[in-house]
Write a protein that binds this DNA or RNA. Structure first.
Lengths: 136, 136
DNA sequence: CTAGTTGCAAAGAGTTTGCATGGCG
DNA sequence: CGCCATGCAAACTCTTTGCAACTAG
């Protein structure tokens, strides 16, 4: 095991992720936030520490589903695990919807049993049109 | 509608995509291929034309699920309407699986009725692990 | 002719790396 | 003090854009 120092930058970043447990945070979000509160943190520090946290399973990484889209990170907390549900993204307005639905879990099981494919909800995004954009 | 010229570059690129109808082709694959056969095509031409073809639903774009992974393209075969079913792509070996399954259609209806979201099967790819890669 | 197309180079976005400096333990 | 962490800038990858030269119709 490696040693790990508890620096003020790391405490700040982890704290920010915990505060935003319900949100998907990008590396840029973190960098911007601490710049705005007058406590800037270097981006290499942010990226490196995020990698560490992912490695240690303290946060989860969502790879952007579209090119040029930044990866999102989220603190892992019981009951808030976004890898247990699907995400739907509206192609028109870009909004991200968390789909908590029991039928989707059944679907995953169905695909695993009948089609021998293990879906990774972390990496999968359903694209389409959201309610608002359908009515416009 | 805009005019569209039939240039030798475009004919060549589309021909290459058609030859590789069973493969996932990246922009770099195309650029490399034509460089190697002594008929180089500029990368901006390739990227721009691929965008056109995606726009016109002649080819399909799969965006990589890992950082730094290039997007893949594939010719859409007429008579095999890929917009009526889902696609699953294995994150490990890259293979693409067409999922013809009645339950998936029900799922789309369920999401539309209960969650007010219209899924676009053309643009959606389910990422995960295929049978072969699970056993290795 | 003339509007669409090409291709080079340069710009961009997101991310990673090299390296000297800084600070935890 | 020894090490790991920090942060700046530069490197990197894939992709897009500006623009002058080119070409299909």
């Amino acid at each position: 095991m490696e040693k790990s120092y508890k620096t003020k930058q790391r405490v700040a970043i982890l704290g920010y992720l915990r505060e935003n447990i319900d949100n998907h945070i990008t590396a840029d979000n973190i960098i911007d936030h601490f710049k705005q509160v007058g406590n800037p943190i270097g981006k290499s520090t942010v990226y490196r520490y995020l990698d560490n946290l992912v490695e240690e399973n303290i946060i989860r990484k969502y790879t952007g589903s579209e090119r040029g889209e930044a990866a999102c990170f989220q603190y892992i907390n019981e009951g808030h695990d976004c890898c247990t549900h699907f995400h739907m993204k509206c192609s028109k307005c870009g909004s991200l919807i968390h789909l908590d639905c029991h039928e989707m879990e059944e679907l995953s099981e169905h695909i695993l049993k009948e089609h021998n494919f293990l879906i990774d909800m972390c990496k999968t995004t359903l694209y389409g049109t959201c309610e608002n954009c359908m009515n416009n």
